[in-house]
């Protein structure tokens, strides 16, 4: 059941991206281009998405458990650290270069156009590269005597 529910959620999410026009990189770039012919659509997409998600989350907060699993896995971090800032910066540069972020990239994959396939392969490589980078960093820090005693290990991801 949780797998079926998750599939349906992915389907609805993808439909939302298609209907909103956010799978079209030109439309996304039109929003990011403040100094050109600005297209404010993305702000309306965000407003609609945040309003409905916030309502759903408020309902979830009042419940003991989700329908098909043991507990709610709310992200539990609230610190602003260097990886958060640096990662968001790198992501923003990549997003601005072509106007595609991970969700629309996967939805667009269905069309199997060459640039999208190249983008998705490169994106997955970047994600794997970041995993390896992270592991090496932790190994090096773990080898340093008592260097990270007080620094908390990264817990659940935000998204």
């Amino acid at each position: 059941m949780p797998v079926l529910a998750s599939f349906v959620c992915g389907l609805v999410f993808g439909a939302g991206l298609l209907i909103s026009g956010m799978t079209d990189p030109q439309k996304v770039l039109g929003f990011l281009d403040l100094f050109g012919a600005w297209d404010a659509t993305l702000a309306f997409v965000m407003a609609g998405a945040v309003a409905v998600a916030a309502t759903g989350f408020a309902i979830a907060r009042r419940r003991a458990a989700p329908a098909f699993s043991a507990r709610f896995l709310w992200p539990d971090r609230n610190d602003i650290d260097t990886p958060l800032v640096g990662g968001a910066l790198l992501f923003g540069i990549g997003w601005g270069l072509v106007g595609i972020c991970p969700g629309p990239a996967l939805v667009n994959l269905a069309g199997l156009s060459l640039p999208i396939v190249v983008f998705v392969v490169a994106m997955l490589a970047g994600m794997i590269g970041q995993n390896l980078f992270d592991r090496n960093l932790w190994r090096r820090r773990a080898a340093a005597p008592r260097a990270i005693e007080t620094s908390p290990l990264p817990s659940r991801a935000d998204g």
Binding site: L90, F91, A105
Partner: peptide, 8 residues
């Protein structure tokens, strides 16, 4: 751009 998006 893909690598930057994935890594970032």
């Amino acid at each position: 751009a893909g690598v930057l998006v994935g890594f970032g």
